[in-house]
Structures are given as structure tokens and as C-alpha cells.
Amino acid sequence: MADDQQLWGYAEVAAHLGTSVGAARNRRNRGTLPPPDDTSIADRPRWKPATFQSWKPLGQGHRSDLHGNQTE
């Protein structure tokens, strides 16, 4: 991956989501984060910031289970 491409670890993802690092890890373990863009280092998934631009996290006032994943 190019050096100019920034990647986020759990700390940056947590800051973006406004949660703790532990909560970000739990989201990944439950499968509620988008798939990582880089898994080349074991136990250290990393994401491109752009991955989170169009992604809408579940549990942020949005009940997808009630409305078939429709957006408000």
C-alpha cells in the first residue's frame, strides 16, 4: 500500500465513532464494522478513512431491523 495512503487502526476508528477503543474492537468482533482494508498485520486490522465516509453504523438511532435497512 502506498505510503501516502493513511490507514486507521482501532484508536482512529474509535475517535471517528465517538466510542472507546474497546467498543470499536467489540463492533468488529460482532461484525458491525465494515471489513478492514488491510489485514496484513495479524490482530491489527486497518481501514482507509474513505471506508467510513458512506458507512452508517447500526445502533446510532437507526433501527435497520425494523425497516429493512431503509435510511431515514
Rank of each mutant, 00 (worst) to 15 (best):
residue 10 Y to K: 09
residue 42 A to R: 15
residue 35 P to G: 06
residue 9 G to T: 12
residue 9 G to L: 11
residue 13 V to T: 02
residue 39 T to V: 08
residue 35 P to M: 13
residue 25 R to G: 02
residue 5 Q to E: 12
residue 32 T to N: 06
residue 56 K to G: 01
residue 21 V to Y: 04
residue 34 P to V: 13
residue 61 G to C: 09
residue 60 Q to P: 01
residue 69 N to C: 11
residue 5 Q to D: 07
residue 12 E to W: 13
residue 24 A to W: 06
residue 16 H to I: 04
residue 70 Q to L: 12
residue 41 I to T: 15
residue 53 Q to C: 03
residue 67 H to T: 12
residue 35 P to A: 15
residue 1 M to P: 06
residue 40 S to R: 14
residue 22 G to T: 06
residue 66 L to S: 11
residue 10 Y to G: 07
residue 31 G to F: 10
residue 68 G to F: 05
residue 47 W to R: 03
residue 18 G to Y: 09
residue 10 Y to Q: 01
residue 29 N to S: 13
residue 3 D to A: 15
residue 34 P to W: 02
residue 22 G to V: 09
residue 10 Y to V: 01
residue 70 Q to S: 11
residue 11 A to T: 01
residue 18 G to D: 00
residue 65 D to Q: 08
residue 24 A to D: 04
residue 32 T to G: 05
residue 70 Q to P: 00
residue 33 L to Q: 02
residue 9 G to D: 09
residue 58 L to E: 10
residue 54 S to E: 14
residue 62 H to D: 07
residue 41 I to F: 01
residue 26 N to F: 02
residue 20 S to R: 11
residue 72 E to I: 04
residue 27 R to N: 03
residue 7 L to S: 04
residue 33 L to S: 10
residue 27 R to Q: 10
residue 44 R to W: 03
residue 50 A to P: 00
residue 30 R to E: 09
residue 65 D to K: 07
residue 23 A to T: 14
residue 21 V to G: 02
residue 58 L to C: 04
residue 71 T to K: 14
residue 30 R to L: 13
residue 22 G to S: 15
residue 17 L to H: 10
residue 39 T to F: 01
residue 5 Q to H: 03
residue 9 G to S: 14
residue 55 W to Q: 07
residue 33 L to C: 02
residue 26 N to L: 11
residue 45 P to N: 02
residue 2 A to S: 12
residue 63 R to P: 00
residue 58 L to T: 06
residue 64 S to W: 06
residue 9 G to M: 09
residue 62 H to N: 08
residue 20 S to M: 01
residue 24 A to R: 04
residue 30 R to V: 05
residue 8 W to S: 02
residue 15 A to L: 14
residue 64 S to A: 11
residue 3 D to R: 15
residue 59 G to T: 05
residue 19 T to F: 09
residue 31 G to V: 12
residue 20 S to N: 07
residue 28 R to V: 05
residue 57 P to I: 11
residue 13 V to K: 01
residue 31 G to K: 15
residue 25 R to D: 00
residue 8 W to A: 01
residue 12 E to R: 15
residue 27 R to E: 03
residue 62 H to K: 05
residue 51 T to E: 00
residue 56 K to V: 12
residue 44 R to E: 14
residue 28 R to T: 08
residue 42 A to W: 03
residue 46 R to F: 00
residue 41 I to M: 12
residue 54 S to N: 12
residue 14 A to E: 04
residue 30 R to M: 08
residue 7 L to H: 08
residue 31 G to Y: 11
residue 38 D to S: 13
residue 39 T to Q: 09
residue 67 H to N: 08
residue 26 N to Q: 13
residue 64 S to E: 03
residue 31 G to I: 08
residue 40 S to M: 08
residue 46 R to K: 11
residue 30 R to Y: 03
residue 35 P to W: 03
residue 31 G to Q: 11
residue 12 E to L: 14
residue 40 S to Y: 01
residue 22 G to Y: 04
residue 26 N to Y: 02
residue 48 K to S: 04
residue 20 S to V: 08
residue 71 T to S: 10
residue 3 D to S: 12
residue 30 R to W: 03
residue 21 V to W: 01
residue 4 D to I: 07
residue 21 V to H: 05
residue 15 A to Y: 01
residue 42 A to Y: 07
residue 27 R to P: 00
residue 70 Q to E: 00
residue 43 D to V: 07
residue 17 L to M: 15
residue 23 A to R: 14
residue 46 R to V: 01
residue 53 Q to W: 05
residue 4 D to Q: 14
residue 14 A to I: 13
residue 42 A to F: 05
